[in-house]
Design a protein around this nucleic acid. Sequence first.
DNA 1: CGCTAAACGGAGAGGGTTGTCCATTTAAGC
DNA 2: GCTTAAATGGACAACCCTCTCCGTTTAGCG
Lengths: 224, 224
Amino acid sequence: MPEQSSRIAPSAETELRADALRNRQRILHAAREAFATRGIEVPMAAIARRAGVGMATLYRRFPSRESLVTEVFADQFAACGAVVDVALADPDPWRAFRTVVEKVCAMQVADRGFTAAFLTAFPEAVDYEEGRARAERGLDTIVRRAKAAGSLRADFDLADLVLLFKANHGVIADTGDDAADASRRLVAYLLQSFHTTSPTASPTASAEPLPPPPKLGLASLLTR
Amino acid sequence: MPEQSSRIAPSAETELRADALRNRQRILHAAREAFATRGIEVPMAAIARRAGVGMATLYRRFPSRESLVTEVFADQFAACGAVVDVALADPDPWRAFRTVVEKVCAMQVADRGFTAAFLTAFPEAVDYEEGRARAERGLDTIVRRAKAAGSLRADFDLADLVLLFKANHGVIADTGDDAADASRRLVAYLLQSFHTTSPTASPTASAEPLPPPPKLGLASLLTR
DNA sequence: CGCTAAACGGAGAGGGTTGTCCATTTAAGC
DNA sequence: GCTTAAATGGACAACCCTCTCCGTTTAGCG
């Protein structure tokens, strides 16, 4: 194992010529914008044009669409992780849960490409794997705590979060300016279903029995 | 106005040669299958191949993809209308509401192309207009009755149905075998939010205040 | 039967996207 | 400055999809 110092960023951002690095940033910026406004399917050529570089430059820096998407959404995933971390520090379990849900859904609204990346993202993009696992553990903790506090229904399943994110995506997709309103409303409805209103009520028996949860793990957000 | 007898079906199914009519049916059948399994974006060539006809035949019968989609989903829209009609006859307002929601969502699951047709469908397809308006009136009645009975929350908005259908679409899309489970679960959650549990509770004050409803009319299901 | 208009199938034009190649430009060390 | 390897950009091959054209086949009537 001759490697030592270059743990992160294998094909690093260093050891790139000044102009190359500048263009790389430009491409990322342009891609971010393009994905956000036109969705993840925007043609590579459009990104190149917006970035003011040629196709070759784009493809030299990011050999495939996938690698570009991965890179572009890396920090957005990081932001998700941060949301989870903040929530973990919240002493109020229900507020923590609610906040995570609301914030992530708001992120989905803000950047429609983000959700698409979530949902259609490439299973091979193992780069996310670590962060994803961490986020999943965090969410699990938050859910557990909220249940223990009696504010989240006992039959809530982690997969229900996937359900919610996908539903939110559906509400946002192909919806114009009303997307924000629509999303907020959906989230409010679902949170009310998730919430156990009576703090002292029997913690096991929930409002009404539910059909079985889907077998989707959080991974299915990335795995299809 | 020299026209008289040919009100419906302007380019009728009659006055087609026997083989032509047979092929037309084949195309519709193939398209129905193809849309259901591969989604509404399936290439026309695939439909032609599945139907065992040439491209020309397909395009002669249905000049555009849109016209084919319109025709294919016409009866599915009709089925929706039937669901509404049946519900209208139900003496139990809440059961009527719940049934409509569950059935339509189940239809969305059964045929993924159907929702897509719903959501992306072509505004120009005025053929639907009449049925759509009828369905909307029916739904409005059902909602009104359920509210009056105190079983549907007072701040429920007709647009919330659109919300639900879109959310359901999101849950189904790109989800494999678990789509049915996922959809059922989502619907159950949302129905619980919509339901007013306490039959004698103050009918005005709902569980918790909601953010404003999106301004989507039912038409937006067809209009984008 | 045999004729004719209707119907047919498949090749291909036209438009769009992805990813590659190569002659030219440019950063940066000597 | 000057050299050279890195970096660049636009043209292009390959591919997929929609829709059309046209020579050939077939239904159906006299």
